Every structure is written in structure tokens, then in C-alpha cells.
Simulated scan of single mutants.
Amino acid sequence: MTVFAMAPDGVRIALHELGDPDGAPVLMIHGFSSNARRNWIGSGWGAALAEAGLRGIAMDLRGHGESDRPSTGYDVPRFVADVDAVLEQLALDEPPGAIGYSMGARLLWRHAGTRPHAFRALVLGGLPASDPFERFDVDLARRALAGEAEPGPMESFIVDLAAVFPEHDPATLVTLAGEVSRTLFDPAQAPPAVPTLLMTGAKDTRADDTRELLPLLADGRFEEIPGRDHVNAPTSGAFRRRASAFLAEHLG
């Protein structure tokens, strides 16, 4: 069953449950152009979480999945406020753990760094040390989406990702990427202070610099996801098992 949290600007944020309903809670945030069902539910995370005694609460980012898709309103502070709204609605007895992938990992890094008591432990997958949206030209991407221009490498990557899944609106996702790119990811600005596990696919060329983030973390470690790239890492059993074990260790 899907329930909704209400963001401060009235956008509905869809929430999905998986794992052990009586377990320690873990907020889960997917990557750009994905959604909770594809990133977590359909790739076997429920069983891994249940085995570790964890209750997954997976949110669809605004513009994705079953959450609302406003025509604008995708700046970074709104995404951070969406996480605040979800945590407020959940009204948990104690801070949860969290798992994020790619864009979801950047969001959790930012949120946990500015709200040090929101989470007890983090698993951040596919997280580059730099910001992949830095070289993104939203106007060029829009023209490319309409078949009116030849995209550059970053625009091509975003446009292709935005069109992967039929349930998403590519134009909305291109707008989202453009608005997010106005506030570039600066990991040194406010790194998380809680125990943090960084995991990146061994073949991930989009986040091959994840290890560079370790010196910024008070309690951080890094592990590779064997044989996976940026797109298919969330389907890895090794990723599921290791992430679940790490969070169970810190939430027990």
C-alpha cells in the first residue's frame, strides 16, 4: 500500500514499505530517473532487509514514481524539506537509518550533514565526490529532447536516463536536473557525522572517485560492489546484504 507525506509546498511524496514491518526503520531514497519500486522493491531489497530485522520505508522523490510532478519546484532545498516532511509524518520513536543511491545518496549526505540528529547510520551507494550535474546545460537538453539539437555528453546521459522508464515524464526530469544543477554538491560543506558506509560498483565510471569522500567522514568506510556499474548496482545481492548488515549493526 502506498501512503503519502505532504511537503511544505503541497507536493505529495509517496512512501512504500518493505522488509520487516516490526524492524528498525530505514529510510530509502532512489536515484535520478528511478523510483522506489524499481530501485528497491523490484530488486529484492525487501528480503535482505527482513532477514536483517529492518523495516524499509522507500520514498519516491518528487517528479518520480507515484509522487507528484510539479512543473517547477525541484531546487535542492525542496528535496531536503521533503525528507524533513517524511520524517515528521513517520514520527518514529528514534532516528532511523537511511540508504540512498546516486542522487538519493547526495540528498542524504546533504540532509544528514545539516541535521546531525536525523539519522543514526547511512549507506550511500553510487555517490561521486564531484557533482555530475555540474556540466549540465538544461536548455540544450530540452532542445535535444525535442530533436532540435545535438546534446553534449552530460545532456545525452540525462536525456537518455529520463526516457528509460515509461512511467516517467522525460521533460519533467530534464527540468528537475536543471534546477538541481543550480546548487552543486559540495561534500566538504557539511559531511555526515554518523557512521557511513560508501558503496560503489567496481565498474561504475560515474562514481569512480567515491573513496575521495572518506577523509571528510568522522566514521566512514568504503566497499566496492563487485562486477556492477552505476545503473545495475542496486540489483546486486552483495550490495543488499552488506548494506542491510551495516545498518542492522548500528540500529540494533
Rank of each mutant, 00 (worst) to 15 (best):
H111A: 10
H111P: 06
H111N: 09
A112T: 00
A112K: 07
A112D: 04
A112C: 05
A112S: 10
G113R: 09
G113P: 04
G113S: 04
G113M: 05
T114A: 13
T114Q: 10
T114V: 08
T114Y: 03
R115C: 11
R115F: 04
R115E: 04
R115I: 05
P116D: 05
P116R: 10
P116V: 05
H117A: 15
H117K: 14
H117E: 11
H117Y: 11
H117Q: 10
H117V: 11
H117P: 03
A118Y: 02
A118P: 05
F119C: 14
F119M: 14
F119H: 13
F119E: 09
F119N: 08
R120G: 11
R120C: 06
A121Q: 02
A121R: 03
L122R: 05
L122E: 10
L122Y: 06
V123C: 10
V123A: 07
V123Q: 11
V123W: 08
V123R: 11
V123P: 07
V123M: 08
L124W: 09
L124N: 07
L124K: 11
L124H: 06
L124G: 07
G125Q: 08
G125T: 14
G125E: 13
G125W: 04
G125H: 03
G125F: 02
G126R: 12
G126P: 05
L127H: 07
L127P: 04
P128L: 13
P128K: 08
P128A: 03
A129F: 15
A129S: 14
A129I: 13
A129K: 11
A129M: 13
A129R: 09
S130V: 10
S130W: 13
S130N: 15
D131C: 11
D131S: 15
D131I: 13
D131E: 11
D131R: 14
P132D: 04
P132V: 13
P132I: 14
P132Q: 07
P132N: 06
F133L: 15
F133K: 09
E134C: 03
E134S: 12
R135Y: 14
F136D: 00
F136A: 02
F136K: 05
D137K: 06
D137H: 07
D137N: 12
D137A: 02
D137C: 03
V138Q: 14
V138P: 02
D139I: 02
L140W: 01
L140G: 00
L140C: 01
L140A: 05
L140H: 01
L140F: 01
L140D: 00
A141E: 01
A141S: 04
A141M: 04
A141G: 02
R142G: 08
R142C: 06
R142V: 05
R142D: 09
R142H: 12
R143P: 02
R143S: 06
R143L: 11
R143M: 09
A144H: 04
A144P: 02
L145R: 08
L145T: 00
